[in-house]
Design a protein around this nucleic acid. Sequence first.
DNA 1: GGAAGACTCCCCACTTTTCCCCACACAAAC
DNA 2: GTTTGTGTGGGGAAAAGTGGGGAGTCTTCC
Lengths: 147, 147
Amino acid sequence: MARFKGQAEYSVDSKGRTAIPAKMRLALSPDAGGTFTLTKGFEPCIYVYPLDQWKIKEDEYGRLNTNNRDARHLVRMILMWAEEVSLDGQGRISLPKALSDYAGIGDKVLIIGAMDRIELWNPERFADYLQDHTDDQETLAEKVMGS
Amino acid sequence: MARFKGQAEYSVDSKGRTAIPAKMRLALSPDAGGTFTLTKGFEPCIYVYPLDQWKIKEDEYGRLNTNNRDARHLVRMILMWAEEVSLDGQGRISLPKALSDYAGIGDKVLIIGAMDRIELWNPERFADYLQDHTDDQETLAEKVMGS
DNA sequence: GGAAGACTCCCCACTTTTCCCCACACAAAC
DNA sequence: GTTTGTGTGGGGAAAAGTGGGGAGTCTTCC
């Protein structure tokens, strides 16, 4: 499984393209073949899954009970935003307009490695997000990872 | 498991590189292969984990459920600061800008061996830290290891 | 149906940063 | 006093990030 980490602030050019940091490209599994699925983040950002990771997610959604109203809605909401993109010769991807609008991404993007996915943020929105989530990391770790 | 100890004040050159003391390099396990993961300390410093130690931590984070809001936040907060670096031919590593900014490290760095990790401090900040934590060691030992 | 415009790819080119290697100074060891 | 190892500094090649041109496709409007 790919393990993305680190952060970087990159620019988005006039054609809506942004580079994926070389370190993250190196962390890609060969199965992903330079292809990603972009989708709407739960937070106001874009989630970028390498193809192999996305397949796993997709399988999870596929196993949900379609007789359940909430499950149907969830799958609809997630898949309608999903879009497949590939790296160009310079290691860049182009951001679908619907998604960059949702995330409010202009000509700068903050790229964050978050384990199995990469996240793309508007740098200012991320600063706001941090302000709203000032929980002390130690407390959080205890809550989430327990004893 | 590697057991780092000792302290040293080294310089950081104009390219942002600093040497890892030879004694600590010798304490490295061969599994680490001269590679470290640097991350943000709970204190205002940089934590330096040899690769083998870091893998253990990373595996724990990888097992968290990404459908949980707090878990996502924790993983984001930790991994965004994590960066992998390797020793160069002279036994140095280069410090990522985001981390040396966080730790306030300029052209001098205090290197402290702390068991399974190494810590990098701005020497002045470490002095401040000591002033704010004047509990005497004997009392502390009893509190922590008492029973 | 055909032309104008937008959009998507796939290249090429420039600039900056990173990384690898060589060199020197100082200290400790023999 | 020479040798070995450690910390420090810097040059140059290679890679990474950024910007833009041009062919091909699709849409839209006359």
